[in-house]
Design a protein around this nucleic acid. Structure first.
Lengths: 128, 128
DNA sequence: TATTGTTATACTCTATAACTATA
DNA sequence: TATAGTTATAGAGTATAACAATA
């Protein structure tokens, strides 16, 4: 229950209020893992290609990503962040960090240490 | 990131695959906090009354909740779990517990202790 | 006249099926 | 003939506006 509620609270902190979680997840994946084809993005986010196509259309119209046909295989399209898209990811991370920093600031040293110990273990659980 | 991923993984464990998160959240709230009017449910889940009305319609058609006009104010409708609805909540909790138990079983005693220490602190953070 | 619930309608996000362009 | 992407269309879930019943 604690993880559900904390995840929900953190998700609420974002740079662009009108952007959906699915749209932001694409920007974040591009920032962390670099450019992807549309199919790769669909597989990573576990949605269908048409669904990802629509998400990417919205992000392109908003100026957050570019689409570039690939030279070695002209059927493929490479999706990458624009500077504006990168800004959205970085600003959202900043906001979440700021929220977390303020929240962690109200804890004792022992409590912060307990969370640090737990984070790697939680990650291991989630990867099962 | 660990909380996002763990929350997502746990949410996937449910008794009725076709039930949406929103529908399940209503059943869980009724189980934990007892019967609610439609307006109370909408406020608790932070959706509009028409949206909650639709969710409740689906749950009623599936036989998971009952609607009862209230005696003291006939405008109000009390929503409560049926035995089948209660079963869905309990079975989902059992599945999540089973998944967690298996996952925790692969950890060391020290790791389990670290998670136990962290859970109360995470809850405190989420309540901010 | 205000409040509670409901219906009407529209928008977003998701999906499957059909289509286009390229390999 | 198969694959990557796109378009067409439909099904959930959400919203706002309008309505009905009750206080």
């Amino acid at each position: 229950m604690a993880t559900f509620r904390l995840a929900r609270r953190l998700r609420a902190e974002r740079a662009v209020d009108s952007m959906s979680d699915g749209q932001f997840a694409v920007l974040a994946a591009l920032k962390v893992y670099g450019p992807h084809t549309l199919g790769e993005l669909a597989e990573r986010e576990r949605v269908t290609a048409p669904s990802m196509n629509r998400t990417v259309n919205c992000l392109q119209e908003s100026g957050f990503i570019t689409r570039t046909p690939m030279d070695d295989d002209r059927r493929k399209v490479l999706v990458d962040l624009t500077p504006a898209g990168r800004d959205v990811v970085e600003e959202t991370v900043r906001r979440r960090d700021a929220w977390l920093e303020a929240a962690l600031g109200e804890l004792t040293d022992a409590e912060r240490t307990a969370l640090a110990d737990a984070s790697a273990i939680l990650r291991k659980l989630a990867d099962r």
